[in-house]
């Protein structure tokens, strides 16, 4: 394949990747009552409708809350697991890795169904957000694990030995040598867990209780029956929220998030 041809081909693919996202953003500024093309002028009316729609506002608050709690729990558990995996696991290394990545490799829909039955079987049910948050933690755990493991893999054991030879006890070594070195991995993993959790659909859909709809669920329900550009406004706000987190992490904190 020649260079110009390859470049042109790739540009087409990038356009394909961006198209549906751009269309949603574009549609959100449509002044008309329906999604029509060409748009009937530019307006923010659907944003105003959205911000006055208590159902959507509650969903967005729920989503932020769930994503925050998920991030904290996943961050702590995933970091600890990564520390074990890289620093202490010997023969169990592969097993630990596969187990930690399992939620990513298993079909989310099956995990969601299994978890739904299970929370009923053990009596947690879906009256509160516990079941849903457990599901979110399961799904986001691999991302924290991957990010922290990656930063730990580049941690040179001789740094720790050097600190020992200089007389540093275990806790001091963790705080002053290990933590600064893996900080970006931990923060990156946590932020990614937040973004993933914010967008999780299937798990939330199955495990949502009364009044605990997250934003994707509310949007999905809305789209089944409505076609106004309000959904586009909701989507655009959600995209901007995610983008803000990404930009903060990559530009301001200078992090490189490992997706795989």
């Amino acid at each position: 394949m020649s260079r110009p041809f390859l470049t042109g081909y790739c540009l087409l693919i990038y356009a394909f990747l961006l198209a549906p996202i751009l269309v949603v953003v574009g549609a959100s500024f449509n002044a008309g009552a329906f999604l029509t093309f060409p748009p009937q002028g530019l307006s923010f009316r659907w944003y105003i409708t959205f911000f006055n729609n208590e159902v959507f506002m509650r969903a967005i608050r729920t989503s932020l809350w769930v994503a925050f709690v998920t991030m904290i729990i996943s961050g702590v558990i995933g970091t600890m697991a990564a520390l074990f995996h890289v620093l202490h696991a010997r023969r169990s290394k592969d097993v630990v890795r596969i187990a930690m990545l399992a939620p990513l490799l298993l079909p989310e829909v099956l995990t969601a169904i299994s978890l739904l039955f299970f929370v009923y079987a053990i009596g947690i049910g879906t009256q509160n957000m516990v079941g849903m948050i457990i599901g979110h933690v399961l799904i986001t755990l691999p991302f924290v694990f991957i990010n922290v493991s990656a930063s730990l893999e580049s941690f040179d054991p001789s740094w720790d030995m050097a600190a020992r030879s200089l007389g540093a006890p275990k806790l001091v070594r963790f705080r002053r040598i290990m933590l600064p070195m893996i900080k970006s991995g931990v923060i990156g993993g946590c932020l990614f867990a937040f973004i993933i959790s914010f967008d999780i659909f299937t798990i939330s859909f199955m495990l949502k209780g009364v009044g605990t709809s997250t934003l994707p669920i509310q949007l999905f329900d809305y789209l089944r029956t409505n076609f106004t550009p309000e959904a586009a406004a909701v989507s655009t706000v959600s995209i901007v929220l995610t983008l803000t987190v990404v930009i903060i992490s990559e530009k301001v904190l200078g992090l490189r998030i490992h997706r795989f």
Binding site: D156, S158, W159, M161, A162, A163, I177, M181
Partner: peptide
């Protein structure tokens, strides 16, 4: 150490 192990 062989690789110096300076704290980066």
């Amino acid at each position: 150490f062989q690789n110096y192990a300076l704290f980066p």
